[in-house]
Simulated scan of single mutants.
Amino acid sequence: MEQQSATTLEFRIASTVSSRSLDVSDFMHTPCYCEENVYQLCKKLGSIGEADADGSDLFVVFISNDSKKVPLWHQKASKQVDGFIIWDYHVVCIQKNVDGKTSSRVWDLDSDLPFPSSLSQYISEALQSSLQLYPEFRRFFRVVHAPLFLRFFASDRRHMKDSLGEWIAQPPTYVPIFSEDGTVHNLDEYIKFGEGDVRNVGRDLVDKIFSGKYGVVLNESQLEEFFSLIH
C-alpha cells in the first residue's frame, strides 16, 4: 500500500481481552503493509477471543479501483486536519456481528476513528459516502472471508521494491507470508479489480464469499446490504 506523500505510525503487539479496552497499539502494524497488518489482526482477534477462533465472523476488505486512486478520510498518515489521503489501495477487516442486533464493525489500524468503528460510521466518515466522486476515484471493495484469506494469501513483498530492488518502505520483521499450497506471491490477484468485477447482490453472491478464495467485488452502495445478508 502506497500513498502520495505520507508516513504512518508504528505500533507494538500487546495482550488484551475485550474490544472495549483494545487499542491499535495492541496489534502488529508495519507502515504501508496494510494487507499483512490485517492478516495479523485477523489471527489475533481469533486468538484472544474477540472473534471466532477460526475467524469465521471476519472478512478482509480490499478497497481500490482501476485507477489505483482511493480517497479516504480519518487516516493517520494524512497531513491534513480531516485525515484525507489517497491510497493506491487500502485493506481493513469487517467483523459481522452474529447476534443481528448491532452493526458490523470495521477494524482499521490506520484510522483515527474509534477502534473498531461501526460499519455505518466508517462508511459515513472514512468513506464520506455522501460526496460525489469523479469516476477515477470511485471505490470498490473486494470482500474475502478471513478463513480463506488466512489459508491462501501470499506476499513476498516484491511490490514494495523499486526498479533497483530497494525497499520503498521497510518490510515487517517477520518472515513473508506464504499460502498453505506453497504460493509465494498472489497479492496482485487481490488488488486488481474495478467496476467491471461488480455483480448484483443476492444469495448467490453471499454464498460465493464462503467458497471463493478471492471473494467478491462490491461497489460502495452494496456494502451495507451485502453484510446485512450474511448469517
Rank of each mutant, 00 (worst) to 15 (best):
V198N: 02
D188Y: 02
K192C: 06
P147F: 09
Y122H: 06
H185K: 09
H185L: 08
V144N: 01
N186T: 08
Y174W: 08
N186D: 13
E125V: 05
S163L: 08
H159C: 10
Y190A: 00
R203S: 12
S129W: 06
Y190F: 15
V206E: 08
L131E: 14
Q222N: 01
R139S: 05
K161Q: 15
D188K: 08
Q222G: 01
R203M: 12
K208R: 08
W107T: 11
L131N: 06
L223H: 02
A154R: 09
S179Y: 09
A169P: 04
D88A: 09
N200C: 04
V206K: 10
F140S: 02
E220A: 04
V91Q: 04
S179D: 10
I177W: 04
N186G: 03
Q222Y: 06
K192R: 13
A154Q: 10
D162Y: 05
T102F: 15
R139I: 03
R151V: 03
L119C: 09
A146M: 12
A146R: 07
E195V: 09
L223A: 02
V201F: 10
R139P: 02
I123Y: 00
S163C: 00
P114A: 07
Q128A: 07
K192A: 06
I123A: 01
L119W: 11
Q128T: 03
Y89G: 00
F137Q: 02
W167D: 11
R199D: 07
D156K: 14
E195Q: 13
S117L: 11
Y174T: 12
L150K: 00
L164D: 14
H145Y: 11
D204N: 04
D207S: 09
L127G: 03
V91K: 06
D207G: 01
R157M: 12
K213A: 01
G202H: 07
S117K: 08
W87D: 03
L205R: 04
Q121M: 12
G215E: 12
Q132H: 02
Q121A: 05
E189P: 00
L148Q: 10
A126Y: 09
E180H: 01
E136L: 05
E195H: 05
V184G: 00
D204R: 01
V216I: 13
I86T: 13
P116E: 12
I191D: 01
V144Y: 09
S211L: 12
D99F: 05
T183W: 00
H159M: 14
S221Q: 12
P171H: 13
P116C: 08
Q121V: 09
V98C: 07
R142A: 03
I168Y: 09
V144G: 01
N186S: 07
S103E: 15
S111L: 06
L164V: 00
L131T: 04
I123N: 01
R105P: 04
Y89R: 01
R157N: 14
V91S: 03
F178G: 04
F178Y: 15
I209Y: 04
V217Q: 07
D188R: 11
V144T: 11
G100A: 08
L164K: 14
K161L: 15
E166M: 04
V217I: 11
K213H: 04
H90T: 09
G165D: 12
K208E: 11
E125M: 06
V184I: 15
E220R: 06
Y214V: 06
G215C: 10
P116D: 13
S111G: 07
L223Y: 05
T173Y: 07
I123E: 07
G212Y: 09
V201N: 07
V91R: 02
Y122M: 05
Q95G: 10
